[in-house]
Design a protein around this nucleic acid. Structure first.
Ligand SMILES: [Zn+2]
Ligand SMILES: [Zn+2]
Ligand SMILES: [Zn+2]
Ligand SMILES: [Zn+2]
Lengths: 130, 130
DNA sequence: CTTAAATATGTTATATTATAACAAACGTTA
DNA sequence: TAACGTTTGTTATAATATAACATATTTAAG
């Protein structure tokens, strides 16, 4: 039945909330949203978030301390993430661009360090806000 | 042509500390380091940090909530920043790569949104730690 | 099946990071 | 001088995240 990694109860609850949201959610906003489901403490949220990130189900937008569901499923367990962020309306979109991903993954060799992962955040003003 | 913006007293104190440091500094670590200089409150640190970022003198490493002095002076007022981060020893280096910067700045046009700024953070294991 | 290990949960407390709000001092310039 | 913007000082509080410990549940061997 469960072909892929199955989620625990709390992980599923947190993922559902994040998926339903229109934008990035903050940890405490998730907490307030799930208190009716019996989750009462930040730890429970942060633990679920940590696991979901490990699994590549969600990403953290570092510049906003907020979490979004993975839309692309191209970013293989959160190894290569890129986002566009509108500084006016705060809309965040995951960028799924094979060329970009390949270019940045290939960047590894040019330096003495071998990269395992990257996160890229673009900022600007979106179409609607222009 | 370029007007040399002079720093205020607190801005200079905070910048000096960050420049002397071997790695990224956290705001409260800066605070503890400057209490002998008469700075007593987080606000004073965060205000200085905000201005120094605006001026492009320092950058924030978003994934670490820490601050480093700008090493490259190629990133024109913090519009195009990239860092390599060792997940073992936590060493952070600013990446100064004209091609990379050009490539990412050029990425703007491909999407409906015009980007004004980006931040890229690479993670891996550095030479020393390998 | 039985047991041990690993994973997940619940809970309380605390640490860390960041901002709000207000008053006073300072620096520029009209 | 007066007005304005910026910087500073200060107290308080908000927002984000982890520590530590006890219990429960699932998984995988033996
Ligand atoms: Zn993704
Ligand atoms: Zn917008
Ligand atoms: Zn720089
Ligand atoms: Zn290292």
């Amino acid at each position: 039945m469960t072909l892929l990694q199955s989620l625990s109860k709390n992980q599923q609850i947190v993922l559902d909330i994040i998926k339903k949201a229109k934008g990035p959610l903050k940890a405490y906003s998730i907490l307030f949203n799930v208190q009716k489901k019996g989750i009462n403490a930040p730890q429970q949220i942060y633990r679920a978030l940590d696991k979901l990130i490990e699994m590549g189900k969600i990403h953290k937008i570092e510049s906003k301390n907020a979490f979004v569901a993975c839309k692309s499923s191209d970013c293989e367990i959160s190894k290569a993430t890129a986002f566009s962020i509108c500084e006016s309306c705060e809309v965040v979109d995951e960028i799924s661009d094979a060329k970009l991903s390949k270019y940045l993954s290939g960047f590894n060799r040019k330096k003495g360090m071998k990269f395992k992962r990257f996160n890229l955040e673009f900022f600007g003003i979106c179409k609607k806000c222009k």
